[in-house]
Design a protein around this nucleic acid. Sequence first.
DNA 1: AATGTTCATTTATACTATCAATGAGATGTC
DNA 2: GACATCTCATTGATAGTATAAATGAACATT
Lengths: 252, 252
Amino acid sequence: MIATNPRDVRTQLGRNLTHGMLDALGRTIVIGEYENRVFPTEAELAKQHGVSRSVTREAVKMLTAKGLLSARPRQGTIIQPSTSWNLFDTDVLRWLLERKFSVELLRHFNQLRVAIEPEAAALAAVNADNAERKAISDGLARMQAAEEGMDNALEADIAFHVAILKASRNPFYLQFQDVVSTALRTSILFTNRIKGRSASVEAHTAVRDAIAKQNPDRARTAMRKIISDVLDLMDTVQLEKKSAGSKKSAKK
Amino acid sequence: MIATNPRDVRTQLGRNLTHGMLDALGRTIVIGEYENRVFPTEAELAKQHGVSRSVTREAVKMLTAKGLLSARPRQGTIIQPSTSWNLFDTDVLRWLLERKFSVELLRHFNQLRVAIEPEAAALAAVNADNAERKAISDGLARMQAAEEGMDNALEADIAFHVAILKASRNPFYLQFQDVVSTALRTSILFTNRIKGRSASVEAHTAVRDAIAKQNPDRARTAMRKIISDVLDLMDTVQLEKKSAGSKKSAKK
DNA sequence: AATGTTCATTTATACTATCAATGAGATGTC
DNA sequence: GACATCTCATTGATAGTATAAATGAACATT
């Protein structure tokens, strides 16, 4: 069924067979391809993908490292419940998005952002040095330039938010760069169609200014506003869909 | 120097040689053992640990999956900058804590908690079902029991906070169970020595009640208070240490 | 009947030997 | 000195074989 030959695996994604197989397997697992089917044994996997068992073993080991699989003699290799997947792993995140687009997932993304980024902004207000403040201002400048078509709005937005994460000077916050980037990239598929121009340059300016003035509380609330607006927008759209155009959804 | 024989690796940690080596290597990398030394080649690693090259390769692949290593032909295996380590990986987290105890790390932990947990509480207030609310209440009850020596205060505390993460019904928040647990376990080494009894059962009760009444805003602020109190405590202690007992540190 | 015990079987685990591909650095050539 | 070429250490990949661990069934024991 899923028969693949080595050349496919090689070209698909990855500098070598193992990475190619990692990607292929990871994707099919996350998609749920094996949901009601037993996961193959090492030997079968190797045969299916046309690679040696060592390559297979290494790919499987990488997937267990990311929490997707576990292997035990006699029992075979089995898929772990999705609760034990490491969702902050770049690969897992990518696979998650490659399956059908899900508003639910996007909402979860933003529910996370609304926790992380306001606090990151507050930390940045306290901890940022001049270079980091400049990086934030540069991001903002790019957003303004994008308003007049001089720059890419999405990339500018990402640059701004990532700069703040970096300025927080907390290694854990740095880890969210991927999540935030992908969340923004995905949001645009959904958000901009509705709101025409995401804009909200003023809101971003408020964050920058608060950080410049080293005011953590103002930075936090300003950032919170940006993201909770997105969340509210998602909720209203969701409601509209539910009431199927018959009744107007109340609540602003 | 680091010469190990297979039997050590086996017994150290892990159901098999690969996992044993994963743990041994991971630990030494995170400790910084190779900071100013070139990382050995596959062949050398295998010889040093007294295992075959395949085992070594699998361990290395797992470490690359966690972001600690990268390997390229001719160049060899090299340690990635710590910024690309996956800090939310259980193993990485454990290795991080096994090296010398660091107040800095503990502060970073709690700076993360102060972002996550209040928002998790708010989500729980909206999303929790009866079973989840009961789990939260049970955690609180255990904390009260612990007050009178009828239960383990630390485990009760962890149960309470984890129950809230679960009740948030957001898969990303679930991922923080490990972080929160280890943060609490580590905190106690530092916090309880100072404050006698951590207690603050009332503060936890406030969170529980807000969630029971499905009031997200109150839940958020109540939870925020719990954690920011810990952070404040850490800051004052830090200040006291700096002023070396000469001047009293002001500020409550 | 309930409870250990042995044993066969399946599957991951581990080792060895061997060859291919790669690419950084040394070497040579113009 | 710039550019091509060679070298070879190192990862990448395969094949074959042997071992160890987990499971369940058959069997023996109480």
